[in-house]
Write a protein that binds this DNA or RNA. Structure first.
Lengths: 260, 260
DNA sequence: AGGTGCGTTGCATAATACGCAACATGGTTG
DNA sequence: CAACCATGTTGCGTATTATGCAACGCACCT
């Protein structure tokens, strides 16, 4: 699933173009994107025109930059993976963000990375919308990643855990043995934390979300700056997260929520 | 914007494949999709493998069908058109669906069609999730379409209104003159309705949503079966819609809401 | 066992995507 | 005003690559 031996190059190029649009750069002109990617501008012009024809890109006039198109909203709505989870979790996570006054995320495992499915920032903290929905993150130094790792069956843990744990900050755990010890602790205490392990100044707490069959397929997190999300507050956040996770589980049809 | 003279064929094919996935058919095998599209299965296999490599499609194992991939969620989250509108409207529309016990939609204009951005079905009515997010509909025989048409400047109305109004049911208004007369009425009465004009058995009421600058860029609708959403109830639905629309407007930063 | 269906892949070649170069447009500067 | 620069588009020829054929491995069924 990870290594694809062959791909159609022009389709790959189109996908690369789509992925150039993001929170930091939501608009691209043809020439500037061509320079950015190192491709000829006529190639980029034709690829973008094709994506525009299909509704995946849009722009107002020929002299204005392209943006992602509305067709993507329709496609995303038909992504059935996690569809119930997202619908069910949204209002609950919004409430949680409001009550704990920090950013709240819904995170799932995808290959050897985790992906942010939803993010809620309390309005009072919206000084900077960091736009993390869809963002992929390393599994070993995110709180959600650790929770999801901790709940994997051992055979799958071996396959999922990267052989080398990349170092992002001086606090990143890069020893697989250290991480495995921590995963055992996470299972016992019921939540995971990161203290500036992925990004200096960013801490997070995460708990598992059990689906209708009692499996852990996702995690919800509270994240914020290290000066606010401090270690002495981790248990409090964990408790609030656990309450919300139980609500989500219950709504997903899990009958064992009260025994968790 | 509508007619693109040239497109890269393999990219077009890839887009066609993505659009084959929808509410009615969220999963496709390689061979069945190849048959459906009339393409050779090796072509389809390679296109889908490329889309899988890019995260736009996914599947568990080689013998299982493909589904749309999580990367689309990230792309959709970066569609900046209407981003604020969707965020702001979601909770309000959920409440409205619950209180009026019918399906509620958020709709925008895109070219000469309207597109559903959001849809909320009250849980008690979820006998059939019709999956309309992203769905494109004709502009002349949908309540939201009529509202959006009614609020267009005359020059843009001429350009947007199709020369021929397609007929969908015996009730569809197909005379441009009749439709223009109705648009004047809609402006005066403040809401639009369709009575089985797009689909037999489906009625809807729609009102405009004014953005921060007082322009009408979207519409919200209540829709339901003709036996429940009856003409004598249209004004009641319109009033509820108007209240919600005013809330949305206010949150979008419109200061003139109380004078609407 | 044979038959059927699925999805993948090596290969050759026809088709097409690509880069060049020219063009039209808009904006800026002297 | 003309010259210059930037943008994005497009005709053209050809090198590259996407495509279809055919074969294969695998799973399932009779």
């Amino acid at each position: 699933m990870e290594s694809q031996p062959y791909a159609i190059q022009s389709v790959e190029k189109a996908i690369t173009i789509l992925k150039a649009f993001g929170h930091d750069k939501p608009e691209w002109g043809v020439s500037e994107l061509a320079r950015h990617l190192g491709w000829h501008k006529s190639t980029v012009s034709r690829l973008m025109a094709t994506l525009e024809k299909g509704g995946l890109l849009t722009r107002n006039t020929e002299s204005e930059p392209y943006r992602l198109g509305v067709e993507l909203i329709g496609l995303a709505a038909h992504v059935i993976s996690y569809l119930d989870l997202r619908e069910v979790a949204r209002p609950l996570l919004r409430d949680l963000a409001q009550s704990c006054q920090e950013t709240v995320n819904l995170v799932v495992l995808d290959g050897s990375q985790v992906v942010n499915l939803e993010q809620f920032v309390p309005p009072e903290r919206l000084v900077k919308n960091i736009g993390w929905v869809g963002k992929r993150m390393p599994i070993h130094c995110t709180a959600a990643g650790k929770v999801l790792l901790a709940h994997l069956p051992p055979s799958r843990l071996d396959r999922t855990l990267p052989a080398e744990l990349a170092c992002f900050t001086p606090h990143t755990v890069t020893s697989p043995d250290d991480l495995r010890r921590e995963l055992s602790l996470i299972l016992r205490q019921g939540y995971a934390t990161v203290t500036e392990e992925m990004e200096v100044g960013l801490n997070a707490v995460a708990v598992p979300v059990f689906d209708h069959a009692g499996r852990v397929q996702s995690s919800i997190t509270v994240a914020g700056p290290a000066y606010r999300v401090t270690a002495d507050r981790y248990p409090t956040y964990a408790q609030a997260l656990r309450t919300t996770a139980a609500d989500i589980s219950r709504r997903l049809g899990n009958r064992d929520v009260w025994t968790m």
